[in-house]
Amino acid sequence: MAAQGAPVVGIGLRAPHYAQVLERRPDLAFLEVHSENFFGDGGAPLAWLERFRGAYPLSLHGVGLSLGSADTLQERHLAKLEALVHRFEPLLVSEHLSWSSIGGRHANDLLPLPYTEEALALVIERVDRVQERLGRPILLENVSTYHAFAESSIPEWEFVAEVARASACRLLLDVNNVHVNAFNHGFDARRYLAAIDPASVAEIHLAGFEEADGCLIDTHGAPVSPEVWSLYEAAVARFGAQPTLIEWDTDIPALDVLLGEARKARAILVPREVGATARALP
């Protein structure tokens, strides 16, 4: 994995920036796209992805597999993902530690799991099957949640750590989601980080949240907050300089705003090279 040695920062690439990124070729270590945006059989999206693949390493980040659903794994979805992975040979492939469908009905949103022994066993078994099917390890991302099930019997951080330990997958640690959940559910974000095996984290996500009615909402529509930058520093100290991604999905700003956030992340990854990094970036 390219993560070893050089600290690397990428951005989540969304349609408004497609042409600019190819034209300007900003100094980014990788581009992350939502896998489902390239599930079509042909046409412009796949043609764009071919061009991105020629310019940068790719990360395929899935939002729709519904890994934690009690329904059986969706064969059609998995087949699309498998074809995409084989065609584009991405650097990273990731999905979410959540569910989004049941009884064949989809919410198309990342829904919270009840943290129970049953859910834990199901997720571990599913991760194994997906990895076997794709012929490669995947990363699982911790999600932001607003609702907690009364049935939960395992703290989120223990659930996440156990999924990584028991299946051969590694974690995509979303530091913003840890902060959002710590606030929403009243736990200590640093205790969460301390529960995760340092060797199990292989990517970090950073994004912005918004506050409404005393709840933090993970909108991916704002700059990374000072508290999350501070938590990111703690995460880098514990997990090392893992590939880090800036995500922005609603009210998408100018590309330079994202590149500015990427620069900030890089400054934390390589404090001694801040000046050099800033000069190297456009």
């Binding site: 659903s69 009690a70 329904d71 569910w99 469908s101 049941i102 009884g103 009905r105 919410a107 949103d109 829904l111 009840p114 129970t116 049953e118 859910a119 199901l122 609702h147 099930f149 049935e151």
Partner: peptide, 15 residues
């Protein structure tokens, strides 16, 4: 305790 599928079905229904 309710099975995972039941909890998920009720939650999705409420959405």
């Amino acid at each position: 305790m309710k099975a995972l599928g039941v909890l998920q079905g009720e939650f999705l229904e409420s959405l």
